[in-house]
Write a protein that binds this DNA or RNA. Structure first.
Lengths: 342, 342
DNA sequence: CTTGACATCCGAAACGTTTCGGGTTAAATT
DNA sequence: AATTTAACCCGAAACGTTTCGGATGTCAAG
């Protein structure tokens, strides 16, 4: 079938050991011999069999990432697309490949993690979208397998692992205060499912913003959605149905904000005039939306790149200068939040 | 370290062979024994070592894909992002993982292919963006390794492999005729680099469209770009600098069309009124652009899914009902092409 | 002439799995 | 009672590589 060390050994007249060492760049093989062996290897089109290598426990030069396929397909413009791009670019720069599995969270998902980790297919893993008491983190810690996380644990839980996160509590506080400063007194909120770790941070940030703005928190101004467009649509429908006083809606991510905009527009209302809308993430679609979306910017692509650099450092056993990075968010004002109202 | 068959064998009192066969679902092991072994395996958290399996030549349940990292990073909204999403979703549905390597075309790139194929890391490969006399196709055919391609070979070259492509010659003919029908008499074209296989199809389609519209083909109305926004920007700058008569520019893909729009707007001209613009692909950003982009729609996501289904059929040794699929393109008219002119 | 150092090479074991070709026992058949 | 059959089990080889622990030969130093 494929050429293997044995073939090169036979053709060159040396032993398998010597061929392996010659190709491996060891210095206890004569330079002439090495050249000869390399010549034979090239002429036969030799390519090492990686499973055999990995069986010996060597590096796979591969980073694993499991993408939650929520229900439907993962949308082409969302958070993960961008994160993946950052991770992929940084990985390729270091000659690492990416092993990707898209999985619906649940039983199957952990099996995917086990396959990658225990199955010895990857040197390290990138996790995203931390959940409450995240079993994936527990598993990887227990296995002491290198990993990095996009997003820290929920408030009150242990954060004893390397992560990069954006201070979304600050983000939501800023957004809420901004809405208050525009004159809004009744501000709705669409949160992600409660099992997502950052839900609490965003919830708290919203409360803080209201408080600083001198407004009262009302639980019935808060809806929950599935982080997709559809969830934002339904969340906004619900809020608009039950809370006629609302003049602003903040969604926990851009995709839901876009869904909320559809809901508002579907009722014949105008986004930015009748109801102000804001999101979180600043995905590319935010800029191109009609009207363009006011949002909190997260440097998702850069986070992906930095995560890979952290992960590779861990894999190589280097010390991390910063293992837990909390980035400050930035408000991006566009048309969807409208202008100051009475 | 990790639990292996040997551990289960020792703990359960059976041999490695029997454990393997019990777990593998063979019918020559007593049902009670099997249950007992499965119990022990679970209690030890057993996960098979995949390299060891693959070394025996078994399926890797993995599909490989190499993404050309043009120069810079691959943009988050482009063709590949969508294709990847389609491929990923379809693969996960069949419990296949994806091994992705982003590479700059050239020497390194072929090494990546060899690593995946000869290195025995994937069961099959998905190629995209065919080039002239594509060495990747030659290699995979020679290795008789399962693969499918998004995009057929250039005109005149052999197409003896499974692919899905959109009839881009027809696409460009339609676009060009559409521009003519709007009254344009001087229509510029921005083509991809000549090594890309579909460049000739699009070039020919443009010529056909001109001919049917009764216009003469002029080589100096044609510019080339790198398929990125920047290439479209430069291509449009060049055309506008040298050909003041132009009232329309067709770009070979949406990303370049968006770049061309920036160039036009940068000169204080209005897209759709002063210069009509059209693209090709209908990526999500096309719809959200200002003005929204007139383009030819390619069902990229679906193509990704169908490619995976074809590839898995090949891997399983099934007969393909259709191995070479040519889809008909669809014109999507939006604001960037403006309205009828004098 | 012996010893040691050095350069160069190699045999064999190991990694964890699957699978071929049996083996053993007990029940069923002659 | 002898033979066949079926059910269940297992030893050992194989996959292709890396690497430990030498082996061999040459040459300079003692």
């Amino acid at each position: 079938m494929s050429t293997k060390l044995k073939d090169i050994a036979e053709k060159s007249g040396y032993s398998i050991t010597t061929v392996s060492r010659a190709l491996g760049g060891y210095d206890d093989v004569n330079e002439q011999t090495r050249q000869h062996i390399i010549g034979v290897a090239n002429s036969l089109g030799y390519e090492p069999n990686l499973p055999a290598r990995h069986l010996r426990g060597l590096s796979t030069q591969t980073i694993g990432m499991i993408i939650p396929a929520n229900d439907q397909t993962f949308s082409a413009h969302d958070f993960f697309s961008q994160l993946l791009t950052g991770v992929g670019d940084a990985a390729s720069r270091e000659r690492y490949d990416l092993l990707i599995s898209t999985q619906i969270p649940g039983e199957e998902e952990m099996a995917s993690y086990r396959r990658m980790v225990r199955g010895n297919r990857v040197d390290g893993m990138v996790l995203a979208r931390t959940r409450h008491h995240d079993p994936r983190i527990a598993y990887l810690q227990e296995q002491s397998h290198p990993f990095v996380v996009s997003g820290r644990s929920a408030p009150g839980e242990l954060n004893d692992y390397p992560f990069i996160d954006v201070d979304s509590q600050a983000g939501l506080r800023i957004l809420t205060e901004f809405m208050v400063s525009l004159g809004h007194r009744h501000i709705g909120l669409i949160l992600p499912p409660i099992e997502i770790a950052y839900t609490d941070y965003r919830h708290d940030g919203y409360r803080e913003g209201l408080e600083r703005g001198g407004l009262e928190y009302r639980a019935d101004y808060v809806a929950y959605g599935d982080l997709l467009r559809s969830g934002g649509y339904r969340g906004a429908q619900h809020l608009l149905d039950t809370q006629p006083l609302l003049t602003a809606i903040i969604a926990s991510n851009d995709l839901m904000a876009l869904g909320a905009m559809s809901a508002i527009q579907g009722r014949g209302l105008q986004v930015g005039r009748d109801v102000a809308v804001a999101g979180f993430d600043d995905i590319p679609a935010a800029e191109y939306a009609h009207p363009a979306l006011t949002t909190i910017q997260q440097p998702i692509y850069e986070i992906g790149q930095r995560l890979v650099r952290m992960l590779l450092a861990i894999i190589r056993g280097e010390e991390l200068s910063e293992a837990q990075i909390l980035l400050q968010p930035k408000l991006v004002v566009r048309a969807s939040s409208g202008s100051k109202i009475a």
